Computed example of a mutant assay.
Amino acid sequence: MGTTQLETVPEPKYWHLKTVLSEALDQDFAVGEILPNERELAARFGVARATLRQALEQLELEGRLQRRRGVGTTVAPPRVGVAVGSSGQGWPGESVDGWELVDADGAEAALPSAAVLKLLGGAAVADQPVHTVRRTRVSHGQAVAAELLYVPAASVPGLSAIDGPAGAARGRAVLRELQRLALEGQDRSVELGSARADDAKELDRLPGAPVLVVTTRYFTAAGTAAVSVATYRADTCRLTFGDSGDVEITHEARVAS
């Protein structure tokens, strides 16, 4: 990896350094190879470590680098194309979709955030118990997404007869009862976010790492029956869409799971 003179470059130093580093990744490094430490890289390019970190963070955001616990910063493989569904997709867990059930909380657990409650129907469900199902999406043997699925108790009234303690068995029961409903449709939004501590642990990332947050609402004739908040690794995932390709731009706050 060579050096370059950055003092005369009119654009921000970190942005030019990002370009130089990107070219070096293509020429001098293999996928999975560990980069030199920050001190060595900063000295090699004659920049402050803060400038170097900005460049590395941008390359991570673009999927060129991965920061791994106990390993360091490595060259990332090409992004994996992950389908996030189409207008014809069914209920969560209805078909083989790469998701693995992890756990579920009972309806007596704490209520979801205000943002999720708003998507579920606001005041209409504010005093209702809500089941929370946790799932992980795996692609090529790697966890690429962590999902929280929120299902109001009113959406699965038949669950009471088979209700059990929190865990995977409860999660399967919630999904099974949800699939008994007639799905009328769904809508979906995608936005950039930062990994929370629990998401980072699920996805083998560092807290604050860039992620893509996919929020899906599932509708029946009676209204919203469930809300999914799925956190995808932004460094490894390239989200693809089916026959529903509309893009809606809003300025609302990010849904917090």
Rank of each mutant, 00 (worst) to 15 (best):
V138E: 02
L178M: 09
R233P: 06
R44D: 10
L175R: 04
A43S: 14
G72D: 07
P152T: 08
A126S: 09
G121N: 01
I34P: 09
F219I: 11
S189W: 06
L59C: 04
N37Y: 10
R44P: 08
V138I: 14
P210M: 06
E7C: 07
K201E: 13
S194K: 06
G242E: 08
A226Q: 04
T250R: 11
S113R: 09
V130Y: 02
D103R: 05
E94T: 14
V255Q: 00
S244M: 11
L148I: 00
E7S: 15
D187L: 02
Q27M: 13
A42F: 02
T215R: 01
D28F: 13
V82R: 02
S228R: 03
V151C: 05
L101I: 12
R134N: 13
A43L: 11
S139W: 09
V82L: 09
A225F: 05
L212C: 04
G208S: 02
G90W: 00
P12Y: 08
C237G: 01
H16K: 10
I34Y: 00
F219A: 07
D198T: 10
G121R: 01
R205E: 15
V211L: 03
E40T: 11
Q58W: 10
P165F: 07
V144Q: 00
V133K: 05
A161K: 14
V71W: 06
F241H: 11
D103Q: 04
V211G: 03
S257P: 11
A182F: 10
S139Q: 12
A115K: 12
R217W: 02
V229F: 01
A83H: 11
D105W: 15
A109P: 04
A110Y: 07
P210V: 01
E147F: 01
A24F: 06
D28R: 12
Q54G: 11
G245V: 10
A143C: 07
T224V: 15
V96F: 13
S86Y: 04
N37I: 06
G70W: 03
E100V: 12
A161V: 09
A143Y: 03
F219P: 03
S86Q: 03
R172Q: 13
R233D: 12
A43K: 13
S113Q: 09
Q27E: 13
H251S: 14
D28Y: 12
Q186S: 15
D28A: 15
Y232S: 05
T236H: 04
E184G: 06
V151Q: 01
V174L: 03
T4Y: 11
V255L: 00
G185L: 05
P152N: 00
D105T: 14
A209I: 00
R188K: 09
E57A: 14
V138W: 03
A146G: 08
W99F: 11
G122W: 10
P157F: 00
T8Q: 12
T231G: 09
Q5E: 12
R137F: 10
L65K: 06
L65M: 06
D163T: 13
E100R: 12
R172P: 11
A143P: 11
P129D: 01
T4P: 12
H131R: 10
H131E: 11
R233L: 12
A114D: 15
R49A: 13
L212M: 06
A145W: 01
R176A: 15
A226D: 00
P36D: 06
A43M: 12
R254N: 02
